[in-house]
Write a protein that binds this DNA or RNA. Sequence first.
RNA 1: GCUGGAAUAGCGCAGUCGGUAGCGCAACUGAUUCGUAAUCAGUAGGUCGAGGGUUCGAGUCCCUUUUCCAGCUCCA
Length: 584
Amino acid sequence: MKIKMKDGSIREAAFEEELGKNAFRHTTAHILAQAVKRLYPDTKCAIGPSIADGFYYDFDFAFQFSEENLSEIEAEMKKIVKENLQLRQFAADREKAMQMMEERKEPYKIEMLKDLPEGEEISFYQQGEYLEMCAGPHVAYTSAVKAFKLLSVAGAYWRGDEKNKMLTRIYGTSFPNEDMLAEYLNRLEEAKKRDHRKLGKELGLFVLLEEGPGFPFFLPKGLILKNLLIDYWRKMHAKEGYVEISTPIMLNRQLWETSGHWEHYRDKMYTTSIDGADFAIKPMSCPGGMLVYKMEPRSYREFPMRISELGLIHRNEASGTLHGLMRVRCCTQDDAHIFMTPEQIQDEIKGVARLIDEVYSTFGFSYHVELSTRPENSIGSDADWELATNGLKNALDDLKLPYVVNEGDGAFYGPKIDFHLEDSIGRTWQCGTIQLDFQLPQRFEAEYIGEDGNKHRPIMIHRVLFGSIERFLGILIEHYAGKFPLWLSPVQVKVLSLSDKYIDYAKEIEQTLKMEGLRCELDARAEKIGYKIRTARLERVPYMLIVGEKEAETKSVSVRERDAGDLGNMPIEKLLEILREEGI
RNA sequence: GCUGGAAUAGCGCAGUCGGUAGCGCAACUGAUUCGUAAUCAGUAGGUCGAGGGUUCGAGUCCCUUUUCCAGCUCCA
């Protein structure tokens, strides 16, 4: 069973197990709140749920709270655990509940109370002197919480609305024993070593500089990766009946007015003027694709017409949201627009979903699916939205793909299916998406001649598989922890010479491998072999070839694999055979 | 954008009470010519993110600002 946690992450888990863990974490959140109230009685409490790997509690402190305060709270929490307080549940009617919360001067609880339906009994939990309005469930005694840790402090808007006051959120986690806590913290540390920003720097893949916040620079090895992903993508699309185009990154204001972007997406667009006319740099590729569609009369016989475009797009994302390659201001979307008849909708959506599954399986990614519905700031009629949303739903049902619904999270022109991937510490990122759009064809007055000889309006799908190549690459780096499969490795083989005496032979090997199309480097420094191996390993090079006297004499190489270690001595043909089998 | 933190050599970091900016790795030079995760010695490298202020004196204290980190909001 899939469970969507309050922090947005999706977990596969047995329901009872999940409930038990949640009750446990939720109780720890109560202990946290009780400790805070003891230490700083003026603090107002908001909410404190359990989340995927722990819990949080939102407070409104009467003073400037910082991480330095966490240790004194932890000390107080330990006391509460030791006191072994019982958590007693009781119900109260609305009036009584209101009275209790007013006595305790808890404005956030009062606000929540006001929103609860009339006549409903309200649940409370009491532990020692601390009273919390809460539906539960909880564990029975505070002493059950044997191991916990407060992890970080952050701001969070009251009720998740940026118009509201920002509260102070304390994150923590708890476990039934110290070993489990230590193991969790250790796992977190290990995961941080896979961070694509750290690996990107260590492996020389990309860099983000102060001169261009959110605008990544690709370094030689990173660009090899990016280009390899593109090669893979192009081959796949050629096979799937797509034609590729490329449209300008800058187009005039009128076009963006027609598409609706000027009105609905303007705050994220970079604009400029040319010869006195307004222009915008594209935040999406669809309007350009639309113009290509409209170039000449189209027939139903050409449908489904699948037009792909690796679009370089720019979006002025808010500064605080930037995150390595995962969230940038400039990226390459592996876009495609499919024009079709209404009858072709189901098959096309299913075809794209299958493609996405194929791509993600190739890299060994697991993903979850969300259906995002009509947002507030949208264009188009209710009927169109319903038709489009049902179209996506039916396709998902047909495919038997489990999904969660994300109300109001669709694009302004249509609903979408989103495919989410996880990074090394469990944050999820939207990558693939399939969007059904009735609006753009109308706005651009796109047409095709049907079987009946009359003009009709085509249906349009926008879709990406990677999402953005940058984000996908970020996920990829973390997924493999920098140890890319052979076919993706920026350097596939490194030749390590034992001393200068064998450099000529080492160069000969390097040349042979390069002629075979392998990405190969030679380490000919006057260093010991152990040191060269160490360097190559840190670079995560899949194969190391050691060449010295023995190899030069027998015209062979001694092979070391990144993980498997020594593979022994072999002729170069044998090595090539191994590499081909693995896939180059 | 919001809340809280951080910024010192290419990278990873130390720098106490405000009193001469340091360590390791990398780089460079020289020696070593070596058999599976670090050979030895030496050299060079800094407007301490930027701008202002307090002070006899600021990496250190204060203000402004930029970027980054965690989370929120938003999103591919």
